[in-house]
Design a protein around this nucleic acid. Structure first.
Lengths: 187, 187, 187, 187
DNA sequence: AATGAATGAGGGTTCATTCAT
DNA sequence: CATGAATGAACCCTCATTCAT
């Protein structure tokens, strides 16, 4: 793994463990096993580094959301696939997920970067899915961003409770939540 | 308003504006209009202060959730009341809401405090509501914490999108979301 | 002596001993016997501190130049007085003198500050003296700034040689140089 | 031009533009268009580099001072030649001149190097010139180093005022100053 | 000889905290 | 209680220097 990747990985780990606030360079160098000046060969500043980690996580998230997505499948099948992918990402990459969730709406991530991610591929696919469902009369008429936020928010909330061990989260519960989110937006 | 309240208000304002990590005591003193030593008459440390602000916000949140709650009303009426109260709190106290949402699952807030708040009155009322609905066969069988998290998460997600102006949020949309959240948990 | 004065004195001492380049805060704190943060109660930055020390030295210089200056004395007496005062300042306050001389034309001192000092009292008095001598036909016709720079430059060069012990500098030599500088500008 | 010369030229340029203290190797490499390690093929350290640039400037200065110098010319002619050469050097090589003037008496340049330069050819020629003038009864009796410093100091002071555009400096003014410096040392 | 990624000591500065008033 | 000057550890970052290529 390259030094740059070492640094980004260490950054994400530390944010997850102690919060962005207490990610100091001293901890970072030790964790990433690089000299203290090395970061500046790759990132202009701490803020730049954090934004790069954020961006990478968002890109990864976008890719995962569309894994195994079949445009030709039925509306419900496609919906299920995306919701399932949300869960898989959250379960397999809790650090990425929590970082995105916690800091997306915080002043530390530049607004441009936060909004840029929304114009990416997966966001568009979901929007089209919703609009298709609405034109078919299956999904309730509402602002597509609102609807998109709704189906994301359900999964996110469930994952966060799972992380702090409020309840178990296995295939059965996941199925339940996906169905619940589907029913939530049906007419 | 007392000095202590001045300090707590200034803290919440600054966290909302710039994020917890950039709340320095220098900014705090200036904003709260107190001397730099004054804070230590009321709080042992910065961490203590932040946790106190968090606790106050959680207490306020708990109170608001139960406003106008009629234990004798129908299940759906009671459900609606709580969901509506969530929205009202989020709309009227965005700083409190975002602070709770952002930092509840972060390492800054002590686990004891986060979990303590969950054992408060409103949490119990909601749990009872869910279990009552399940025993009546109306609400789907699932872990009550999971269910609780689900109906909270829907509202939270919608509010966060609203804060960053992804979409408008008036009575009509609120009604839609409350109904959606109700349908999500019905059998 | 106040902390502020301690800091400024230590700064001037260190600049004299090791040059501006190697005045580090670590050395400064130790020498001034203050905590590392204390400087920032008085100066916004290192540059601010250095400029303050420069300004103080320039003000001191301006005051010394006019000591014992009798506006009613003869032209030559007044000229002698000022030249003598230059020497006295240079001999009694070598640190101030060298600091001014070395850094006045360096990029570290803001141009505004350097030029501001030139509009002060002593500069005006000298300018008037020169113009008076020129209108009396005693002093050669030339740009008054050039003439002013000339009589300053002679003393400055002699002082710098004296500092590095190229030659002794007692009352006799001083008299010689003052006379030489007088003859240099006569018609 | 060789890499070594590129580096030395860039060093002098940067010192002139921003002052010695803000000449960093990073800026130097960029300006000289060489890799960051290259400098160590030619100079042992930054201090070594700066002293080499200083030495080169002093050698250049010494050569220029004697340009067109006719040992057989009259005393005054020889004096004028040297003073004129001072001006020409200062006008044609302001970076070299200011570097020498600013740092000769500063702690960055080793004392050995500063004094070594004084034992060079031009210094000796000037000394002899002064002593010859004194034995002829034309030049006032004074320490020859003092006298040497005096005639240098006049030109240096005028040049420094010229650099910061206090006044113009054309042939007429130069002639005036040379005459003034001559009169300054006459008996 | 020439390079530039990597280094880490040390730079200026910030900031939570203390304490004399 | 309230203050704010003073503190110094710790912060982010710079920079001269090294070394494998």
């Amino acid at each position: 793994m390259s030094k740059k990747e070492d640094i980004m990985t260490a950054t994400l780990d530390l944010i997850h463990e102690e919060g962005l606030q207490s990610v100091t360079f001293a901890k970072l160098f030790k964790r990433a096993n690089v000299g203290s000046g090395t970061i500046y060969n790759y990132f202009a500043s701490k803020e730049d580094l954090v934004n790069a980690v954020y961006k990478k996580a968002r890109v990864h998230w976008g890719e995962c959301l569309l894994q195994g997505y079949e445009p030709s499948a039925s509306l419900y099948e496609r919906f299920k696939r995306i919701q399932l992918n949300r869960f898989h990402f959250g379960i397999n990459f809790p650090k990425e997920f929590m970082f995105i969730d916690t800091y997306s709406f915080s002043p530390y991530i530049s607004i441009e970067l936060r909004d840029m991610a929304d114009t990416h591929n997966s966001s568009k696919v979901i929007e089209i899915l919703i609009e298709e469902g609405q034109s078919q009369g299956m999904i309730k008429e509402m602002d597509s961003h609102l609807c998109s936020q709704l189906i994301h928010g359900i999964v996110a909330a469930i994952l966060k409770g799972y992380y702090v061990q409020k309840y178990p989260l296995n295939d059965y519960q996941i199925q339940q939540i996906i169905e619940a989110s589907w029913k939530a937006i049906l007419v």
